[in-house]
């Protein structure tokens, strides 16, 4: 049973020396080692985090670039579309204006033609009247060439007057 009987001297030395070792190692070994391990871990973590952040930033930038590019593309498309619209609008307007102008000119022309026509007709009428009078004068002159004929006419006229 000697084997399982604690020995006073050994317990004494073991306790004393083990406690001393714990304190010495805590001060001169575990303290510096654990502190620097922690510091190193922190610095590695920081480095990893900042690398991750930088990566994120780069990807953000890429996204931003992409966005700007897309915006520019959109802008260009919009501008092209606007230009096309404007062109169309101008052409349409011009066409409308031309149409209106043309219509107006045609109308005026038609009116002028009408007026001219009326004037011509009136002139023609006058001419016809003049001609008719001249013809009638000439016929009358012919008919009134002798005295007897004049007398016959007067008579006729007189007959009519009597009748009236």
């Amino acid at each position: 049973m000697e084997l399982v009987k604690p020995d006073f001297g050994l317990v004494f030395w073991m306790t004393v020396s083990f406690l001393i070792v714990v304190f010495i190692l805590r001060k001169f070994a575990w303290g510096p080692i654990l502190t620097s391990l922690k510091e190193r871990e922190n610095s590695i973590n920081d480095a990893l985090n900042s690398a991750k952040k930088a990566k994120e930033e780069v990807s953000n930038m890429k996204a931003e670039n992409e966005r700007i590019l897309q915006e520019a593309r959109n802008e260009r498309d919009k501008m092209l579309k606007d230009a096309r619209d404007t062109k169309d609008a101008i052409v349409n307007e011009a066409r409308t204006k031309a149409q209106v102008e043309g219509d107006r000119i045609v109308t005026i022309a038609r009116e002028t033609i009408q007026n001219e026509k009326l004037a011509a007709i009136a002139e023609l009428k006058n001419q016809v009247a003049t001609l008719s009078i001249e013809i009638a004068e000439k016929v009358i002159r012919q008919q009134l060439a002798g005295d007897d004929k004049q007398k016959a006419l007067v008579n006729d006229l007189l007959k009519d007057v009597k009748l009236n």
Binding site: F8, G9, L10, M14, S17, I20, V21, F28, A29, I33
Partner: peptide, 24 residues
């Protein structure tokens, strides 16, 4: 009270010396 430096106590001292040497 026997607090002699026995073989085991001496061995503990050797261990302690090794530990101190390595870890410091």
């Amino acid at each position: 009270y026997d607090i002699s430096i026995t073989k085991n106590v001496f061995s503990i001292f050797i261990t302690i010396a090794i530990l101190l040497l390595i870890f410091t």
